[in-house]
Design a protein around this nucleic acid. Structure first.
Length: 311
DNA sequence: CACTCTAGCCGCCATC
DNA sequence: TAGATGGCGGCTAGAG
C-alpha cells in the first residue's frame, strides 16, 4: 500500500507520484520474520518476498495487518505469534487479509469471534479452530479490535473501511480514487462483486437499507423526501448521514448508480437509448448523454459500440 | 446553446 | 456537556 494522504496532490503545480511524508495519515512499515524462520511460503518457486524490517519494527504499531500466506497450514513462527498477542494485549488493532486469518487464529485472537477468510479455506479454518465462528459470505468483519477479510481484493475493501473509520468517508474515497479502486462495494453492484459478498458494516439506523431500496428502483423518481421517508429521517438528517456514510451527497450517489445501470443496459441489451435512459431513471435521453459524457467521456452510441462492436 | 426555475445541498442554530 | 436532530434559508447545479 502506498502512504495515505490527506490531499490528492501534495505538490500542486507539478504532477507527483511521490507523496509528501509529512502529510501521510499513516506511517507504514513492512516487516516480517527473518529469512531463516520465514515460513510464509511466498517463495514457492514464484518469487521471494523479503521484508526490509525485522518483526520488532511492529512492536509499537497501532495497527498490525497480516497479509495472506500460502503456508497457512504450517504453524506461524513464534516471534509472529508473540508480536500479535503482545500487540493485541496493549490495545493495538489487528487485521488479516485472506489466509492471514489462520495466523490470527493460531495466536488465539479469534476464539469466540465471528470472522471471515477466503471462501476456499473457510471450512478448513472452522475445522481447525472450532471456537472460531467463520462466515465465508461477507467481504470483511469488523470486531473493533480484530478485523478479518476475505480474498485479497476484499483486503482492499477492509483497509478502505479502516480509513473510513479513522478519517471519514470523504478521505477514504480520495484514497480509493488515488489507487484507482471502487470506493464502495455495496451489495447490488453485482458486476463488480459476486452477489453473496456484502460488507459487514455495523448496521444500526443508517442509510444502507435505503440505498438498497433505491438500487432496486432506480427507474423510478427518487426525490430526496422519498428516500428520507424510507429511512424514517428528516431530509436534513438523511442528507447529513448519507454523506457521512458514503462520502457523497444522495443526489450525486444516485446519479452515479444510474450511470452504472445505464452502462450495463448499453452493454448487455439492444434497447434504444431513450429506453435505457428511462429504465435507468434519467428523465430524458439528453440527461443520460450528459451524465455519460462527464462520467466516461463518450456518447451512449459510442459506448455501446465499444462494447458490442458495430452491429 | 441559452434560459429559467426547481430541487438539492449544506452552514447555521435552536432543540432534544 | 457532548452529540445528534431537524427546520430555515441562501446559493447553485442541473433538469427541462
Amino acid at each position: 500500500l502506498p502512504p495515505l494522504l490527506e490531499g490528492d496532490n501534495p505538490h500542486p503545480g507539478r504532477p507527483s507520484n511521490r507523496p509528501d511524508p509529512s502529510r501521510a495519515l499513516y506511517d507504514m512499515v513492512v516487516c516480517g520474520p527473518s529469512r531463516n524462520d520465514a515460513v510464509n511460503g511466498y517463495g514457492d518457486n514464484l518469487f521471494t518476498l523479503t521484508p526490509s524490517n525485522p518483526i520488532s519494527a511492529a512492536a509499537d504499531a497501532d495497527t498490525v495487518v497480516v497479509p495472506g500466506v500460502t503456508g497457512y497450514a504450517e504453524p506461524p513462527p513464534q516471534p509472529v505469534l508473540d508480536l500479535l498477542r503482545d500487540a493485541h494485549a496493549r490495545g493495538a488493532r489487528i487485521a488479516s487479509i485472506c489466509t492471514g486469518a489462520f495466523v490470527l487464529a493460531a495466536a488465539g485472537l479469534l476464539d469466540g469471534r465471528r470472522v471471515t477468510t477466503h471462501w476456499a479455506v473457510a471450512g478448513e479454518l472452522a475445522a481447525r479452530y472450532p471456537r472460531v465462528q467463520v462466515d465465508p459470505s461477507v467481504l470483511y468483519v469488523d470486531n473493533g479490535d480484530i478485523l478479518t477479510s476475505a480474498g485479497n481484493a476484499a483486503g482492499i475493501d477492509l483497509l478502505l473501511h479502516v480509513v473510513r473509520r479513522d478519517h471519514g468517508a470523504e478521505v477514504a474515497n480520495r484514497v480509493a480514487r488515488r489507487n484507482v479502486v471502487a470506493p464502495w462495494r455495496d451489495g447490488g453492484q453485482s458486476q463488480f462483486s459476486a452477489p453473496p459478498a456484502i460488507p459487514d458494516d455495523d448496521a444500526g439506523p443508517g442509510t444502507a437499507a435505503t440505498r438498497a431500496f433505491a438500487l432496486d428502483r432506480l427507474g423510478e423518481p427518487l426525490p430526496l423526501d422519498r428516500m428520507a421517508a424510507h429511512a424514517a429521517m428528516s431530509v436534513r438528517t438523511f442528507t447529513r448521514r448519507f454523506r457521512a456514510e458514503t462520502g457523497q451527497s444522495p443526489h450525486t450517489w444516485l446519479a452515479a448508480q444510474r450511470v452504472t445501470l445505464a452502462r450495463r443496459l448499453l452493454e448487455t441489451t439492444d434497447l434504444p437509448v431513450e429506453r435505457v435512459a428511462a429504465d435507468a431513471g434519467f428523465g430524458t435521453a439528453a440527461s443520460l448523454r450528459q451524465h455519460l459524457r462527464t462520467a466516461i467521456g463518450v456518447s451512449p452510441g459510442t459506448y455501446r459500440r465499444m462494447y458490442r462492436g458495430p452491429r
